[in-house]
Design a protein around this nucleic acid. Structure first.
Lengths: 193, 193
DNA sequence: ACCGTACTGGACCGGCGGTCCAGTTGTCAT
DNA sequence: ATGACAACTGGACCGCCGGTCCAGTACGGT
C-alpha cells in the first residue's frame, strides 16, 4: 500500500525546486551546480539527489511544473488554444504559446540542455520527456499530410535550436513566432492548394 | 610576417584529428575525454589543448573538415546541388545532402553538442560556427517570403533536434528527408499560390 | 511512548576539462 | 654548419563537479 510522502520530505522537495528557480533567475545555467542548489535550498547534497536522482531529474521536474499551465489551457481552456477551433487557428495559437513558454523559461531550458549533455545513463532522450511528448502529440494531431508526426518534430525542433533561442534572447521573439506560424500555415495549406 | 606551422606541429595536428575520428567511430561520444584523445594520438594532453584550445575547438575543426565536401559541391558542383538550378530544385537537394552529412557524422555531431554544453567561455554559440553560417546563408538565399533568414533557421533546426536525430539513428532518414523537403516546398509554394 | 523506516547531510570518490612550465626541437639568420 | 630563439611538447597538477554512501535523525503509525 502507498504511504504518503513524509512532511519534511515534501517541504524539502519544494525548497529545492524554489531554490533552483531562484538560482536560474539570477545566474547562468552552466554555473549552477547541484551543490549550489543544495546550499541555496538549505539542505545537503545527498537530499537533492535522493529526491531527484540526478541533475536531469531535477530539471525535468521543474520543466514539467512550468509547462503545466499550457497543457491545461490546451486541454480545457477556451479556443483558439483549447478545443473547438479549427486546426488552422489552433496550431498557430499553440506555437505562439509554446514560444511564450520558452521565453519565460529560457534559462531553465538551457539548463535542461546542459543536463542532457552529460547523461549517458538513460534520461538522455528528450523524446521521452512527458512535456515534449505532449507537445509533439498535439502538434501532430493538428497537422495534415502524410507523416504528420515527423513534421511535428520539424516544427518543434526550432525550440531547441541555438540560433532561434538566441534570437529570442535578443528580444526578437516576434520574428520567431512569425516564422513558425508561416511554416505551419504553409504546411496546412499545402494539402488544400 | 607569417611563419609556417612547424612540421612536427602539423604532424601532431593530423594525428590528433585522426585519433578523434577513430575514437568517434569506435565508441559513444560522451565516453571520449580529451585525455583519451591524446593517448590515442600518442601525444600529451597539453599538446591537444595547445593545438585546439578546448574540446569545442577540436570538434569544430573536425566538423569543418567533414563539411568541406558539401560546401565545394554547392559552390562549384553540378546542379541541382550546385549553381544553375532553380531554388525549387536546389533547396530540396541541399537539404537531402545535409541530412546525408548528418547521417555520416552523427557521432561527431553528438560530440559537438556535448562540447557545447560545457562552454561558458565563448564558443558556445553555434550560430558563429562557420559551417552553420554557410548552411544558413545558403538556405536563406534560396528561400522567398519575408524574413528568409529566420525561416532558414527553422528549417535547419531539425538537424540538431534530438527526436529527428534519433530517427536518423534508427535508419529512418528517408522519413526525415521527406519531411524536410515537404516543409521546404510548402514554404516555397506559399508565395506563388 | 515506542519503533521501524524513510529521510537527511556532508564527507568522500573518480574523473574531467583545462593550466602550467621546464625541457625539447624545428627553423631561420648568419 | 652553427647558434639562438621561439614554438612546440607532455604530463603533473588544479579545482570542480556529478553522484555515492552511510551513520545519524526524526517522522508517523500504532
Amino acid at each position: 500500500m502507498e504511504r504518503r510522502e513524509r512532511a519534511d520530505a515534501a517541504r524539502n522537495r519544494r525548497a529545492i525546486l524554489t531554490a533552483t528557480e531562484a538560482l536560474l533567475a539570477r545566474q547562468r545555467p552552466e554555473t549552477i551546480s547541484m551543490e549550489l542548489v543544495a546550499a541555496e535550498a538549505g539542505v545537503g547534497k545527498g537530499t537533492v539527489f535522493h529526491r531527484f536522482g540526478s541533475r536531469m531529474g531535477l530539471m525535468v521536474a521543474l520543466v514539467q511544473e512550468r509547462a503545466l499551465g499550457l497543457r491545461e489551457a490546451v486541454e480545457n481552456g477556451p479556443p483558439p488554444l483549447g478545443p473547438g477551433a479549427p486546426p488552422a487557428e489552433r496550431l498557430p495559437a499553440f506555437l505562439d504559446a509554446v514560444v511564450d513558454v520558452v521565453v519565460r523559461n529560457k534559462n531553465l531550458l538551457a539548463a535542461l540542455g546542459h543536463a542532457e549533455a552529460s547523461a549517458p545513463h538513460d534520461h538522455g532522450d528528450l523524446a521521452e520527456h512527458p512535456v515534449y511528448r505532449f507537445w509533439h502529440a498535439h502538434v501532430a494531431s493538428l497537422l495534415t499530410g502524410d507523416d504528420p508526426r515527423t513534421l511535428a518534430h520539424v516544427l518543434l525542433a526550432g525550440l531547441r535550436s541555438g540560433p532561434l533561442v538566441a534570437m529570442i534572447d535578443r528580444g526578437e521573439e516576434e520574428r520567431v513566432k512569425r516564422a513558425l506560424r508561416a511554416t505551419a500555415s504553409a504546411l496546412l495549406e499545402k494539402t488544400g492548394c
